[in-house]
Amino acid sequence: MPFSLFGAEKIPFDSLHNIEKNIPNIILWAVPVMLFFTVIEMAVTYYQEKEFYEKKETIGSILVGLGNLVVTAALKVGLLYMCIWIYNLIPWRMELQWWTLIPCYIIYDFFSYWAHRVSHEQRFWWATHIVHHSGEHYNLTVSYRLSWIQHLKIVFFLPVAFMGFHPIIFFVTNQIAVLFQFWVHTEYIRRMPAWIEYIFATPSNHRVHHGSQEKYIDKNFGATFIFWDRIFGTFQPEEEPVIYGVTTNITNKANPFFINFHELTDMVSDVRQAKGFRKKLFYIFGSPVKIAEEKKEMERQQLEKASVAA
Rank of each mutant, 00 (worst) to 15 (best):
M1C: 08
P12Y: 08
H17P: 07
N25L: 13
I27L: 11
W29F: 13
F36M: 13
V39G: 05
E41D: 09
A43I: 15
A43N: 10
E49T: 11
K50Y: 10
E51S: 14
Y53H: 05
E54S: 11
G60I: 03
G65Q: 02
G67L: 05
N68L: 01
M82S: 15
C83S: 14
I84Q: 05
W85T: 15
N88M: 06
L89F: 13
L89S: 15
I90F: 14
W92A: 00
M94F: 09
T100I: 05
L101P: 01
I106M: 03
F110V: 07
F110Q: 07
F111I: 07
Y113D: 03
H116I: 13
V118S: 12
H120S: 04
F124R: 04
T128W: 08
T128Q: 13
E136Q: 15
L140H: 07
V142N: 08
W148E: 03
I149V: 13
K153W: 11
I154F: 12
P159M: 08
P159W: 08
F162V: 10
I168R: 03
F170G: 00
V172F: 05
T173G: 01
A177T: 11
L179V: 04
W183A: 06
H185W: 03
A194D: 14
E197N: 00
S212I: 04
I217V: 13
F221T: 02
F221I: 13
T224F: 08
D229H: 02
F232G: 05
G233I: 09
T234A: 05
I243H: 11
I243M: 12
G245P: 01
V246P: 01
T248H: 08
N249S: 03
P256F: 07
F257S: 03
F258H: 02
I259P: 02
H262K: 00
T265S: 06
T265V: 13
V268S: 08
S269Y: 10
D270E: 10
D270R: 05
K275Q: 14
K279S: 15
L281A: 10
F282E: 03
F282Y: 15
F282N: 02
Y283M: 04
I284H: 03
F285S: 01
F285H: 11
E294D: 11
E299F: 10
R300K: 12
R300S: 13
